[in-house]
Computed example of a mutant assay.
Amino acid sequence: MDFQPTQEQRDLRSGVRALLARWYGREVLRAAVDAVDAPAAVLDRGLWRELGAAGFFALRLPEAAGGVGLGLAEAVLVFEEAGRALLPGPLVATHLAAGAVPGAAEGTAVVTAFDLGGGGGPGAPGAPGGALVAHLGEADAVLGSGVDPAVLLRTGEPVRSADPLTPLHRVPAPADGAEVAPYRDEGALLTAALQLGSALRTLELAVRHAKEREQFGQPIGGFQAVKHLCAGMLVRAELARTAVYAAAVTADPGEIAGAKLLADEAAGGNARDCLQVYGGMGFTWEADVHLHLKRAWLGAAQWRTAGEAEEVLAADLLATGGV
């Protein structure tokens, strides 16, 4: 079996990359980061509508329902590119809400979700006494819930977020998490695809810097320690890519859990190693590397944390007699 993307899938990925480069290139990303403390919202509604017009949210809706009619494998490729560009906003929740929430498919509505768990990393801790919700102040609906976001805003409070482009609010926790339960596997896989895109991007940044930065009269990429860092990043990213693509084909909950674990590790590990390749420069505000690390921390706590994924994998092994 030749387990490779088809030509149509490769064209889709290239097209999405070109679109995001035009709509959300580095200049737009940096402008959004620089304006994060301004009164304007982080989420650009114009960009959101452009994504809707391009079929980003309606990608898996049947054509008869006004969608594109593609599958989970194609959605993973699209979300990988969004992660590579550090595109902000509740992309996963709005995509999952297409067809269920009016305006979600077209990008005229922004949908968030109770998708943040605890223990995902230093940038996304749990929320004792409540739940963390991203982009609540910009949302028109909450996935799987009839609660008005405005009501949650009045009963909640803003929480400082490690990721400057992902505002968080602590709100009263839902009773049993039933709101996102039907979407959890797909949400975890699409988040894994975002993490994969970030891991691949930080690998590119590290390799480029290693070729351009010179020390002692030669590019730092010629030093063995830097070579090892870049090689390790490549291994992490390719393992995660294989797992994410395979889970997109099988849609098996156990494989999705494994893919989320590997993608979270690749996103966080590659961002940290990219910082090492950059040296002190990587810690400065004008470098993009720290933005990938902060987004990776947050992504590790979304839809399925490491602990939750490990529980799914353990249950799957017990059910199949693997242990």
Rank of each mutant, 00 (worst) to 15 (best):
M281H: 09
A243I: 12
A41Q: 09
A134G: 06
L51H: 04
A300D: 14
D115P: 08
V76C: 05
L70C: 10
V76P: 00
E212W: 08
R304F: 04
A306I: 11
Q218S: 13
D264K: 04
E157A: 11
A75H: 07
V111T: 07
L153F: 01
A64Q: 13
E238S: 06
V180C: 08
V244I: 12
G66Q: 06
L51F: 04
F114L: 10
V289I: 13
D163L: 03
L77R: 00
P5V: 12
R30P: 12
A97G: 00
L239H: 08
F79K: 00
C274Y: 10
A231K: 00
A32D: 15
D44N: 08
T202C: 05
A199S: 03
A315V: 09
L87M: 07
R49E: 14
A134P: 04
K227W: 03
G126H: 03
A31L: 11
D264Q: 08
F114M: 05
G322M: 09
L205S: 13
V312C: 10
C230L: 11
E238H: 12
G66P: 15
F56P: 05
Q302A: 02
A259P: 11
T6M: 03
L293T: 00
A38P: 01
V323W: 11
R26K: 11
A243E: 11
L196A: 06
P62H: 10
A141H: 05
E214K: 13
A139K: 11
R208V: 09
A40I: 09
A271P: 03
E286K: 08
S161Y: 03
M281A: 15
D273K: 08
A287D: 13
A141N: 04
G129S: 07
R272N: 01
T284N: 13
W23P: 05
A175D: 14
E204T: 11
T250C: 04
R84P: 06
L318D: 10
G46W: 12
L72A: 09
R304A: 02
